[in-house]
Structure formats: structure tokens, C-alpha cells
């Protein structure tokens, strides 16, 4: 059973086609990686799924329901949460308060929201930083805060937009560990990532897009050897040179 189905989605900005007739699906409990060169349309595809953009054409089915064009806050209540590539913490609120905002998606009561927020922070080993302001955190912790806020909404599907970009190798390993932990808890995860090592290690399947079009889909090892993928990343003449 597919939790998310993207059917023939096209997103056009004026004359630019950012996403061109993209289809993909994610089964429950799966981790799907989305990769592609810079400007390939990964984030745009994500934004279409998350409700930030209303796709020009195509359908998005989440948990058996057509959610095309629904607003981000409604999608969040249905169990779809996301992080942003450029972190957007609430700067004047403490780490705990930041996560509490997310937790209010599942409850109206402050004490329950607080409790949920603490659980999430403990899961991500951030409980000791709960009273810090986001400005005082390292990049790694700010990225982790993005994940924590999204998790507090109790999502069925988590969209992670480059949560490892800019991290040191050991920090990348920590995030991989976290994502595995979430998968083991039964969460479905859709990842955009540039760090190949991470996406190869995590993904059950990988979709590669280039100029908004899907050029390959398969297991990590298949994708790594696919001719089209190598061309997209390394140029047309790589094989003949």
C-alpha cells in the first residue's frame, strides 16, 4: 500500500518547467531518496507535495486521499510534515518552545504539547539544550531542531529537505542514525540529499531527476551504475572521454 503517490505532476513558473511530468510513490515504512544535480527540481517537487505550491498539472495522493492543492497546515494535520533546506527556527523562542509549536498540531493542551515536545527532544538527544535559543545552536543542532519540530506533529510521512547539507562527516553519521531510528519506529520518510554516502546508506529506493524529469528509479546500487545518472552528474562525454 502506497502512502504517497505523485501522479504526473508538472510545475511551471511562467516559461520555466521546474518539474516535468513526475511520478513516484512511497510505500508505508519505506525510505525514498530523491537526488539530482543542482536545479533539477527536487525542492520544487517537495514543495508541491507539501502544499507550498499548487502543481500546474497532476495529482498528489496521500494516504489514499487526493490532496492536490491542499494547504500546508491541513496536510500537516493529516500527517505530512517537512523540514526546510534553509532552517527556519523561531528565533525568539527556546528550543523547547519551538518544538512545542509543532506538538500543538496534535493537541490543544499546553501540558500535553510540552510533554510531547520533551519526548521528541529526548529521542533526538537534545533534551539538555531545551532552554537554549536557536541562535546559540550549532548548524548541526539547528538542523536537528528542524527535524524535532516536524516530528512533534506526529507525522506518518516525513519530508527531509537536505538535513545533512553543511554537516561534518561525524554529524552526518548521527543524522543517519536518527533517520534509521525513525524508520524502525514505522515512519515513512522521503529524503532529498546531496551527500551520496548518506543517501546510499539510507534509501530503500532512489529516484533521480534531471531538468525536472525522472531519469531513473531503483535500488541504490542500480542507480549508481545507471548510464543516464552518470551522464546527468558527470556530463554527456564522460563515457567516451
Amino acid at each position: 500500500m502506497n502512502l504517497l503517490e505523485v501522479q504526473d505532476v508538472t510545475m511551471r513558473f511562467g516559461g520555466l518547467i521546474a518539474v516535468n511530468d513526475l511520478s513516484l510513490n512511497i510505500g508505508k515504512g519505506q525510505i525514498l531518496g530523491l537526488i539530482g544535480p543542482n536545479g533539477a527540481g527536487k525542492s520544487t517537487a517537495f514543495n508541491c507535495v507539501a502544499g507550498l505550491y499548487n502543481p500546474t498539472a497532476g495529482k498528489i495522493i496521500f494516504d489514499g486521499e487526493d490532496v492536490t492543492g491542499q494547504k500546508p497546515w491541513d496536510l500537516c494535520k493529516k500527517g505530512l510534515a517537512r523540514t526546510f533546506q534553509i532552517v527556519k527556527p523561531f528565533a525568539s523562542m527556546t528550543v523547547l518552545d519551538n518544538v512545542t509549536v509543532g506538538a500543538f498540531a496534535i493537541t490543544d493542551r499546553r501540558d500535553l504539547a510540552r510533554k510531547k515536545a520533551m519526548e521528541v527532544l529526548e529521542l533526538l538527544d537534545m533534551a539538555d539544550k531545551r532552554n537554549a535559543l536557536p541562535g546559540a545552536l550549532t548548524i548541526a543542532d539547528r538542523k536537528r531542531l528542524e527535524i524535532a519540530r516536524a516530528l512533534a506533529t506526529d507525522p506518518k510521512l516525513l519530508l527531509l529537505d537536505e538535513v545533512m547539507a553543511g554537516l561534518r562527516p561525524t554529524e552526518v553519521d548521527d543524522v543517519i542514525e536518527i533517520i534509521r531510528k525513525l524508520r524502525d519506529r514505522g515512519m515513512t520518510i522521503f529524503v532529498i540529499e546531496h551527500i551520496m554516502r548518506a543517501i546510499m546508506a539510507l534509501s530503500d529506493e532512489i529516484v533521480v531527476i534531471h531538468f525536472g524529469k525522472k531519469i531513473c528509479r531503483g535500488k541504490p546500487e542500480q542507480v549508481a551504475q545507471d548510464e543516464n545518472v552518470i551522464k546527468a552528474y558527470l556530463g554527456e562525454n564522460y563515457g567516451t572521454a
Binding site: 500543538f104 519540530r149 516536524a150
Partner: peptide, 19 residues
């Protein structure tokens, strides 16, 4: 919490379920 979050980072707040 929703007002404060929405005032500071509207996109992030919307993604967390805030209209």
C-alpha cells in the same frame, strides 16, 4: 505559540500545521 511562530517564520509555522 501559533501567533508568535506565525509572526516570526510564517512558512515554517504553516508547515507545522498553523493557519
Amino acid at each position: 505559540f501559533y501567533l508568535k511562530g506565525g509572526g516570526e517564520e510564517p512558512d515554517a509555522a504553516q508547515a507545522l500545521g498553523v493557519n
